[in-house]
Write a protein that binds this DNA or RNA. Structure first.
Lengths: 187, 187
DNA sequence: GCAGATCTATCTATCACATGGCAGATAGGC
DNA sequence: GCCTATCTGCCATGTGATAGATAGATCTGC
């Protein structure tokens, strides 16, 4: 069951990271969640940086899968775009957690380089997916789609952090609505 | 010079908070910056929560002054709105710091209630100012101006954190441009 | 006007606690 | 007998906080 222990550690760490960030990750709490001792985690992940890197990598991989699921279930790019904010909404709904990309901004200085790189991949995955849908939907000209995609990603991330700091998911929904009314997101 | 010591502590703490957040505030570093011993800070601010509260309060007060300065210098609300992102851009330009409002989202769980309240005031000040300009400029109907103001605040905050996590202020400018093109911000 | 009391602002020294990490022992399977 | 996976026990570091001492300013009563 060695793989399942490693997976369990990763899952617990991912949960903790979405709630407290990289700095908030600590071996003792993760160990307690998994049901092992703190020192045992070092066997699977030699250092905290290694653990953080693995968490961040797994995180964007999972997100990529979720995004593909959305575009598979909604072949109409317009409808896929409409569902995009769900990704961020789910974190909030799940115990007021936020995405690692936002934690990264706060913790930028103390993040090991390898962790930074993986978290940036999260943004890249989002932007690439958005860019593709925007082009498919002919919302913007292809050469501008990446700029718009980045703007949408940043704005939705902003809505998530603002909503979190009020612990108010309805505020998130309202912000997304406002983005649609203003024209940032397709209505 | 008692007042100046207190002010010096507050200034050092404000700087540190914009760089590392509330969790990153620590008595020893602040004391070293000011040139006193860590224990002496407790004389002026009994606990870390008290210091954090004072920092956050001072922070939104300063921001309110900056915003008033913008609207005083630019009586045309359209022009004042154009200058709004400056507030967030300056933090980035100043050693890649970000606003306390964004840190708050990351640190929500560990923030003392009094600190939370003061940081929320920062958002309130921004939204109130934006709402007023939007109404003056007749960009949105008065009854919708607060919703739009909130959307702008969230989006600009999002641009700031995305730019910080790439340590790339040009990205911030580009995101703001995209918001204008998309119609979220007046062109 | 001045001595003694009190207040202000700082210091030194220390505490309790949490953290990441490591060394070495141990049990079980191959 | 070796490899895997875990354990116990420990350490160095950094944290916020407190107690108690001290030097200097300021106030108070005679």
């Amino acid at each position: 069951m060695s793989m399942s222990a490693k997976e369990a550690i990763l899952a617990a760490a991912k949960d903790a990271a979405k709630a407290y960030g990289y700095g908030g990750l600590n071996f003792r709490d993760i160990a307690a969640t998994v049901g092992i001792k703190a020192a045992s985690i070092h066997y699977h992940f030699p250092s905290k940086a290694d653990l953080g890197e693995a968490v961040a990598k797994r995180y964007w991989e999972d997100t990529a899968v979720e995004l593909e699921a959305i575009s598979a279930a909604s072949p109409d790019p317009m409808q896929a775009l409409h569902r995009y904010p769900e990704i961020f909404r789910t974190s909030l709904a799940n115990d007021n957690r936020i995405c690692l990309g936002s934690f990264m901004a706060a913790e930028y200085d103390e993040l090991p380089e390898a962790v930074r790189k993986e978290v940036q991949s999260f943004a890249d995955v989002n932007v690439a997916w958005l860019s593709k849908r925007l082009t498919e939907a002919s919302i913007v000209r292809a050469e501008n789609s990446e700029d718009r995609a980045r703007a949408i990603y940043a704005a939705v991330a902003g809505a998530q952090i603002v909503a979190r700091s009020r612990a108010d998911i309805a505020l998130f929904d309202q912000l997304i609505d406002s983005y649609r009314i203003a024209g940032l997101l397709p209505a």
